[in-house]
Amino acid sequence: MRGFVAAALTLVLATPAVAQDKPGYELVWADEFDKDGAPDPAHWVFDTHANKTGWYNKELQYYSADRAENARIEGGRLIIEARKEMLSDRADHGGQRYSSARLISKGKAEWTYGLFEVRARLPCGKGSWPAIWMLGATAGWPDGGEIDIMEHVGKTPGDVFGTIHNRSTAGTFGKGGQIRVPDACEAFHDYQMLWTPDAISFAVDGKPYHRYVNEKSGAAQWPFDKPQYLLLNLAIGGAMGGDVDDAIFPIRFEIEHVRVYQLKR
């Protein structure tokens, strides 16, 4: 059965990124980043809520809002840029020496199940920590669950991680897998996640590399039957990012599209 699921996932994820070529799925939401300027407020909001107190994994960045230096659409791409600078004139500044941005779809778009695809080129350099991920919209962490579609840290360039966090994994590094993408910092790749009632599967460019199964043991292990929202961010340092090389800045996390497909009804 697992081999069949993997083969089906490969078929769905490996086809070109248009709805009619993904068997059984239709495009329900997308941002193609085709209009220069600020990120579309109909799709995204800036998340700045922990700037003053500090972010949760000992990260070192200040997340700005509505600031083109940190988040803008340019040439058909969303650019999230981290810079070495102190924005100490801002009321919510927490002493951070770096600026960046964190965009979320909370309150704009949330989903239960689907095929998620983000085409991106990642930054490298020690201390960089870009992520494409999802959080539960109806409960806090970890009870609402977390799906890390893509994480990458510059200290191990080319190692891409997909991870699940929930109440049953709290206190651990989560349940996940990794795949080598040697040119992740030079080329664009499709970072993908297929979420069904039975499992969550991760892939890059249609190649599956990790699958988390619903064991039907309860909400602690599977809170993934409720809506989640998307997050795109570029963190600096912290528990996963590690030591920071200041010579890398500024660095860019570039995203060509975000697409969400769901089963046709």
Score class of each variant (00 low, 15 high):
residue 160 V to S: 01
residue 161 F to E: 01
residue 161 F to L: 14
residue 161 F to W: 12
residue 162 G to H: 01
residue 162 G to K: 03
residue 163 T to N: 06
residue 164 I to S: 03
residue 166 N to E: 09
residue 167 R to C: 03
residue 167 R to Q: 15
residue 170 A to L: 14
residue 171 G to K: 12
residue 171 G to V: 06
residue 171 G to E: 10
residue 172 T to H: 02
residue 173 F to G: 14
residue 174 G to A: 05
residue 174 G to T: 08
residue 176 G to S: 03
residue 176 G to E: 03
residue 177 G to M: 12
residue 178 Q to L: 09
residue 181 V to M: 10
residue 181 V to L: 05
residue 181 V to W: 01
residue 181 V to G: 04
residue 182 P to G: 12
residue 182 P to H: 02
residue 182 P to I: 12
residue 182 P to W: 05
residue 183 D to G: 06
residue 183 D to Q: 15
residue 184 A to Y: 02
residue 184 A to D: 03
residue 184 A to C: 10
residue 184 A to R: 00
residue 185 C to H: 08
residue 186 E to R: 15
residue 186 E to K: 15
residue 188 F to H: 08
residue 189 H to L: 06
residue 189 H to T: 09
residue 191 Y to Q: 07
residue 191 Y to V: 04
residue 192 Q to R: 11
residue 192 Q to H: 07
residue 192 Q to A: 06
residue 193 M to Y: 02
residue 194 L to W: 01
residue 195 W to H: 14
residue 196 T to V: 08
residue 196 T to Y: 02
residue 198 D to V: 00
residue 198 D to E: 15
residue 199 A to V: 04
residue 200 I to P: 00
residue 200 I to S: 02
residue 200 I to M: 03
residue 202 F to W: 15
residue 203 A to P: 00
residue 203 A to V: 07
residue 204 V to E: 05
residue 204 V to M: 08
residue 207 K to H: 11
residue 207 K to D: 05
residue 207 K to V: 15
residue 207 K to R: 13
residue 207 K to A: 13
residue 207 K to W: 04
residue 208 P to I: 12
residue 208 P to W: 08
residue 209 Y to W: 10
residue 210 H to Y: 14
residue 210 H to S: 10
residue 210 H to E: 09
residue 212 Y to V: 13
residue 212 Y to S: 03
residue 213 V to M: 06
residue 213 V to A: 13
residue 213 V to H: 10
residue 214 N to T: 02
residue 215 E to H: 08
residue 215 E to A: 14
residue 216 K to D: 11
residue 216 K to G: 12
residue 217 S to F: 00
residue 218 G to R: 06
residue 221 Q to E: 12
residue 221 Q to K: 14
residue 221 Q to F: 05
residue 222 W to S: 01
residue 223 P to E: 03
residue 223 P to C: 02
residue 223 P to M: 04
residue 224 F to C: 00
residue 224 F to G: 00
residue 224 F to E: 00
residue 224 F to H: 01
residue 224 F to W: 01
residue 225 D to I: 01
residue 225 D to C: 05
residue 227 P to D: 03
residue 227 P to S: 10
residue 228 Q to I: 10
residue 229 Y to M: 09
residue 231 L to K: 04
residue 231 L to E: 02
residue 231 L to F: 01
residue 232 L to M: 10
residue 232 L to N: 07
residue 233 N to W: 06
residue 233 N to M: 06
residue 233 N to R: 05
residue 236 I to D: 05
residue 237 G to C: 11
residue 237 G to S: 08
residue 237 G to M: 07
residue 238 G to V: 08
residue 238 G to H: 10
residue 239 A to G: 15
residue 239 A to M: 06
residue 239 A to R: 14
residue 239 A to C: 03
residue 240 M to H: 13
residue 241 G to V: 04
residue 241 G to S: 12
residue 241 G to W: 01
residue 242 G to R: 04
residue 244 V to S: 06
residue 246 D to I: 11
residue 247 A to S: 15
residue 248 I to Y: 04
residue 248 I to K: 08
residue 250 P to F: 04
residue 250 P to H: 04
residue 251 I to T: 14
residue 251 I to R: 07
residue 252 R to C: 08
residue 252 R to A: 13
residue 252 R to H: 11
residue 252 R to K: 15
residue 252 R to E: 13
